[in-house]
Amino acid sequence: MARPSKREDVLEAADHCFYEHGIAATGVDAIAEAAGVSKRTLYNHFPSKDDLLEHYLSWREERWRRRLDEALDGVEDPVDRILVYFDVYFASLEGDAFRGCAFINAAAELPDDSPGLAVIVASKERVRADVAALLAEAGHPDPGPTSLAVATLLEGGCAVGGIRRSADQLPALKDAARALATAALPVA
């Protein structure tokens, strides 16, 4: 297997440090040390901590999207595809290492004009838009409000699951999401 690049090492270290300790509490020295690179190497790849943060969040989003795509492979029914989002969101809830949604945690620390916050907002909006598209595909007459409700159920469930360090509420949340998704569908 090929060795990850120094850039990838820095992103992996940022993932661990930002998630474990928070953005404000994590300096570039700690990230460089965790990555096994010099500060100069870190800055060669990322000119500032804000730049690193934006790339880290985009990198994390890409990894999450790949896992989602893999989980969606072979699932044809649009409502079942919506429920896959719950499975993927909740896949990492168990255990002491889970500290909640990395994007929600980061958003709480970022100013309104942060490019990193823009990555987070785009990610959350993309999930809502995905759900709306799947509802429309299923024949829902007005997918906008229902997609917002399902996405909020997903995000809120993930937040509460993070607090509890448990995915035990996942079946109930998926049942609620299915009920929301199918309530206005035409009878076949």
Rank of each mutant, 00 (worst) to 15 (best):
R99P: 00
S114E: 05
F18A: 02
A129V: 14
H140E: 13
V28F: 10
E62M: 05
M1N: 13
A13N: 05
E125W: 06
S48A: 12
R99Q: 00
D142I: 04
A172G: 11
S38A: 06
G22K: 00
A151H: 15
V131L: 14
A132K: 09
K6V: 07
D175G: 09
I23Q: 00
R40F: 13
A179K: 09
S166M: 02
Y89F: 11
V88S: 13
R165T: 05
S5T: 11
E61R: 13
E62Y: 01
N44D: 15
D15T: 12
A177M: 08
R65E: 12
A24N: 08
A188L: 14
L153D: 06
W59I: 01
M1C: 12
A136P: 09
R66T: 13
V79H: 15
I23S: 00
L117Q: 04
V119Y: 05
R7P: 00
A34Y: 00
A181I: 10
A91D: 14
W59P: 01
L153E: 06
S58M: 07
V28P: 09
A129H: 15
R99N: 01
E70M: 10
F103L: 10
A172K: 09
E33Y: 05
Y85I: 12
T152C: 08
R178A: 10
P186W: 10
F18L: 03
F90K: 01
D168E: 14
R40E: 13
